[in-house]
Design a protein around this nucleic acid. Structure first.
Lengths: 222, 222
DNA sequence: GTCTATAAGGAGATAGAC
DNA sequence: GTCTATCTCCTTATAGAC
């Protein structure tokens, strides 16, 4: 392992800590477990970080910055918006069911931060990141489908994040794939009903939106 | 405090533990903190429970059995289903924002159970209880509004629980009341669109369903 | 039966040898 | 600079006095 720069060592510790948290939970991520995972002596931890909480704080900031991917890759044109939203949800769900410990760790870190005074601003940032990521995907998806959102993008993004959070939590609790599929079907219906076809003409004779029927969402009261 | 039966002592400890968990989090609920809250000597804890995990297990089972209330009370007739659903969501949200630590504790306990082998079945029971409670409210609400659900009740209940979980988590993270209100508006629209007026006639000239327009939810694929 | 006093171990953090 | 060895505190759990 030899000589590492201070920054490298901090990053190595953060990555090791993330692996430990995914495997054992936040509770099991003791300084000893982390340095064992990173194959370092215990003292290196406090050489790199002043305290365990400082490390956790940097770790959450790190994952909040670097975990905004997943669903983006699967976007492709030629589909109506309902199909695109459903496919995006499925892509997310596939990453979830392939590696549940990742999302489980994100939840645990959120709750840990909520209970720690100095970290109490981080959950807000975490959710802001979720919404931004969702907004990016929704924006790109609408463009590819030739549609526009009837609500502000950030509102649609928040609703999508609400679905995804609820879906993830329920699936982590009961591991019911069929139930998750039903939830995703409903979410795709509800979210895509907030879009309208942007370009021209009748929307139903192109065969691209067979399942979207009219729904006038009530104006938000707030 | 004097002499308590074994069952009374267990219950006193569980209630004290719940208070500590709401105040300090699951992590802070040490045996010492709990017996201090219950005003008992430390040894009483292990006189009543074999281990801390056994107590936590009983505690989760207890809250899963006894936390199925909240929204039911506010049900009243004379409203259309959309209004009823929205009011139910608001009633839930009011209890959430009055005492956030209660729902925060429920989440923490869920994640604790997910990480503890002997407790890994409890999250499933916890969600089953959520869905049953939601189903009861939805069933009663539909009856009062003179409507029926076009999907199986348990499916609608699961979707409502998805909304509530996502809503709760987001609000705990960012405390954005206005955003929560928008989410509830959308949830009320989407859920109530799954109902249809049961009894007779035109549904729009009574003035009871001014905001519900048709939405044919796609048949579930699963 | 009940509680004081203590055992046994794990945690974060650091002094001081190299 | 780096790491071994240790300090101090706090945890769960229990032995044994009353």
């Amino acid at each position: 392992m030899a000589r590492l720069s201070s920054a490298d060592r901090r990053e190595a510790i953060i990555h090791a800590a993330l692996r430990v948290i995914q495997r054992e939970g936040v509770h099991g991520a003791t300084t000893r477990a982390i340095v064992a995972e990173a194959d370092m002596p215990l003292a290196s931890f406090h050489y790199a970080f002043r305290s365990r909480d400082e490390m956790i704080s940097e770790l959450i900031a790190y994952v909040v910055e670097n975990e905004g991917r997943a669903a983006t890759a699967t976007l492709s044109g030629g589909h109506d918006i309902r199909t695109a939203v459903r496919a995006g949800l499925q892509a997310y769900f596939d990453t979830l069911s392939t590696d549940p410990s990742r999302e489980q760790a994100m939840f645990e870190l959120l709750h840990y931060a909520l209970r720690t005074d100095e970290l109490s601003e981080l959950p807000r940032a975490q959710y802001r990141m979720y919404r931004r990521t969702a907004g990016d995907v929704l924006s790109a998806g609408a463009q590819l489908a030739g549609a526009t959102w009837r609500l502000p993008l950030e509102d649609v993004a928040r609703l999508l994040v609400t679905f995804i959070s609820g879906l993830t939590l329920a699936w982590l609790a009961d591991r019911d794939d069929a139930a998750a599929a039903k939830t995703m079907d409903f979410a795709a219906d509800s979210i895509s009903a907030l879009a309208e076809v942007a370009s021209a003409a009748t929307s139903s004779d192109t065969g691209t939106t067979p399942n979207n029927t009219e729904q006038h969402s009530k104006e938000n009261t707030q």
